[in-house]
């Protein structure tokens, strides 16, 4: 894709955790592109670096042992060095706002719903007509006005997640980042929240970065998908291409397990082994130890990102395609 039509580009993002005096990469050379009004999903298992990716965008990495080692971000034609934490922190709110996984613990237990939403509005637009905006936001997330005087512990999980979404939207961000927004909810509520985010995205043309381990969730909200594994972006492409013709063996395995495909022996296909721990990261392809079609070079040489097809919009980091 060309630089012209994307509003947000992140290139070469690497995040380092310092553990026991050793520097370990949680995210390495990862990237995304996002068009105005588009939804992109970052998919991966826990440990793939997808949440770290999102936290790096928000400059919300744990200050004690994590830092961005490299990364360039371009948004609306302005470019930022992601290593500069305070520069990135200034983008919180008006540029990026975030919805989190566990809506109870992410709401301040001592503040009413109203004051938490109002805070988001005021911080990013001191001259806003607060009452009007609050009413508007509550309608947008389909919450009754009487919730405004309630405290977080008085609401249900689904309502709390709606409040978190209202807080994020209250910032009027250019991009909404949602980190596993439905994982902590029960199944029926998950569907409601997904439908809500979908509606909001359409109604206000929200650009969305969705972080999830669930390809189903991602494909319902996002036009394009970035698959992460072991800190690398290993495959990217349009949702339909990723789902119908996944190029990377990992993505293939992910789709098989998500669809509960039965193998020749009649049992569900599962992906054996574990996500590489940071410590074990070797020189080659991070997926090589679990890969069914690994070649000798996979253990030693990191494959580069190569176009698969779809006019260069579908790429994978795999030796089979390079």
């Amino acid at each position: 894709m060309s630089a012209a039509d994307s509003m947000l580009r992140i290139r070469d993002l690497s995040v380092v955790y310092e553990i026991d005096g050793r520097e370990l990469f949680a995210v390495k050379n990862a990237f995304i592109d996002l068009k105005m009004g588009e939804g992109v999903g970052i998919v991966g298992e826990s440990g793939s670096g997808k949440s770290t990716f999102a936290r790096a965008m928000m400059a919300l990495l744990p200050a004690t042992n994590a830092r961005v080692a490299s990364g360039v971000m371009e948004i609306d034609g302005v470019s930022y060095d992601m290593v500069d934490k305070s520069g990135m922190a200034r983008l919180r709110g008006r540029t990026f706002a975030m919805v989190f996984q566990d809506p109870l613990s992410y709401l301040n237990p001592l503040m009413t719903i109203r004051s938490q939403i109002v805070e988001a509005i005021r911080l990013n637009d001191p001259s806003a007509n607060v009452d009007h905006r609050v009413r508007e936001l509550l309608d947008l997330v389909r919450l009754p006005q009487r919730c405004l005087t309630a405290y977080p512990h008085e609401l249900s999980g689904g309502m709390r997640q709606r409040v978190l979404i209202a807080i994020a939207l209250g910032c009027r961000p250019k991009v909404l980042i949602a980190d596993e927004p439905t994982t902590a909810l029960d199944v029926t509520t998950q569907a409601e929240i997904l439908a809500l985010i979908k509606d909001i995205k359409r109604e206000i043309g929200m650009s969305l970065v969705l972080i999830s381990h669930d390809l189903g969730v991602v494909s319902s909200l996002c036009e394009r998908v970035f698959v992460m594994y072991g800190g690398y972006t290993i495959e990217t492409g349009a949702r339909e291409k990723i789902l119908s013709t996944p190029a990377h063996p990992y993505t293939q395995a992910l789709i098989h397990t998500a669809r509960a495909v039965r193998g020749e022996d009649g049992r569900f296909v599962t992906l054996s082994g574990d996500v590489p721990r940071l410590v074990e990261a070797g020189k080659g392809c991070p997926f090589a130890p679990r890969c069914g079609v690994a070649m000798p070079q996979c253990d030693t040489v990191l494959p580069s990102l190569a176009h698969v097809n779809d006019n260069g919009r579908h790429s994978a980091r795999c030796h089979m395609h390079s």
């Binding site: 919180r92 709110g93 911080l123 807080i167 209250g170």
Partner: peptide, 9 residues
């Protein structure tokens, strides 16, 4: 909730 507050700016 501190993270949420930071994310608001």
């Amino acid at each position: 909730y501190i993270v949420t507050a930071l994310a608001k700016g």
